[in-house]
Design a protein around this nucleic acid. Sequence first.
DNA 1: ATAAACCCTATAAAATAAATAGGGTTTATA
DNA 2: TATAAACCCTATTTATTTTATAGGGTTTAT
Lengths: 138, 138
Amino acid sequence: MLSKKTKYALHALTYLGKHKDEKTVLIQDIAEEHGISHKFLENILLELKKAGMLGSKKGKGGGYYLIKEPKDIPLSKVIRLLDGPIALLPCVSLNYYEPCAECKTEALCGINKVMIQVRDETLKILENKTLEDILKIG
Amino acid sequence: MLSKKTKYALHALTYLGKHKDEKTVLIQDIAEEHGISHKFLENILLELKKAGMLGSKKGKGGGYYLIKEPKDIPLSKVIRLLDGPIALLPCVSLNYYEPCAECKTEALCGINKVMIQVRDETLKILENKTLEDILKIG
DNA sequence: ATAAACCCTATAAAATAAATAGGGTTTATA
DNA sequence: TATAAACCCTATTTATTTTATAGGGTTTAT
């Protein structure tokens, strides 16, 4: 399951996407809209900013704003940033690979093979669906 | 990511599958083979048994054994039993549905729609791949 | 000047996952 | 029929991760 961090990040990005005609959006406004703790959300927005997914303006009248087109923000990127691996096993993760402790021969592991399939099908969706797709509906 | 419980369960079932010509298999043998704590594994095997996925024989000379053909044990069933929901969000879980707290209108939520797709593609694999498929390789 | 806003790091609280403990019950076999 | 080997059951503890909070620091429009 996705963590709250990731869910909050997706909601925040959606909110920013909806208000992209405004110059900046306040943390507070996003937090209130979705019932998220201001401070918790602040940490998440900072992470998104460090990852180059959004920009901010300090000082009075400042706030956050998207610096990319929604179509250029794949959901996989958001999830990986906040949650880590998308794969169901460390041994099939593309971005966070680790061998499985209890597994002797990865090359001959049937569980491994199935989870590679799951990973690939999941990524087919999450790498191609973007913030734009979410904005279309919600 | 799958929990250790689920991974251990899959390994234990695989081990039982490989030794299905023997009448019973000891917890201890499975635990040693995969470096799992005997007691932890015992709890997992009990859960599998309660769920009707394997049988056991008490007393001296006893142990565990499969009571179904490997082809009749879909991986989805094992994962759901030990880990709970397969879906990435509670609001798209078929077996463990719950509304999302921060979501106002599920029907109009773009995140929800994408995660339904991910769920369906994942289930297409996990409900059709069985212990037999794992045994074929490992 | 000053108030409003983001920036940063550290810590605490809560929830979950993983492991351990300790005995109870059953049964093959000597 | 005594006994040892094996599963059965529940509760508790420990470790890890997630979620949230705290407390200030820095920047900037007005």
